[in-house]
Structures are given as C-alpha cells and as structure tokens.
Amino acid sequence: MATKPKSKPKSNFAKLKTAGIIPAKNHLSDDDKYLLSTLSAAEVKALISTKAKLGDDFIKRNARPSMDYAF
C-alpha cells in the first residue's frame, strides 16, 4: 500500500512568513536570513508571539533612540 509522502519540514523563514511576521515583500538582509535559519523551534514560536514584523521596513519605521530604561 502506498504511503503518503512526508511533506518537507517548513524552514524557519517560511514559518515566520506564514505567521505574518515577515512581510510578503521582505527586506531582510542575508545575515538576518541566516540568523533566522539558526533559531530553535522555541525561538521561532517566541518571535511569532511578539507579533512584531521583522525586516528593514519595520525597523526603519520604528527605530528610535533607546530609552527602555530598566537595569
């Protein structure tokens, strides 16, 4: 009996894109794409939970002087 072929596991990049974390027209640098490929499954889930878009467009819109005072 033929068995259903296993689908190829999604890459971290694909998972984040499906979750809407990486915009359709992504502008991630090659370095960032490599970094994403090294993340664990738990880190990918944590990134998805932030609901913050990744990529240059988001960073340019939101980059501000750091003032998240804490320690």
């Binding site: 960032d32 970094l35 913050a52 819109r61 939101n62 980059a63 750091s66 003032m67």
Partner: peptide
C-alpha cells in the same frame, strides 16, 4: 544581541 536586534524596534517604538 542579533536576535534582540530583530525585535527591539517594537520596544523602541513603544517606549518612545
């Protein structure tokens, strides 16, 4: 640090 830099803009935007 690079992982933090991916998401820090959201924190920067909120604190600003």
């Amino acid at each position: 640090r690079r992982k933090i830099s991916l998401v820090r803009p959201r924190l920067q935007a909120a604190s600003y």
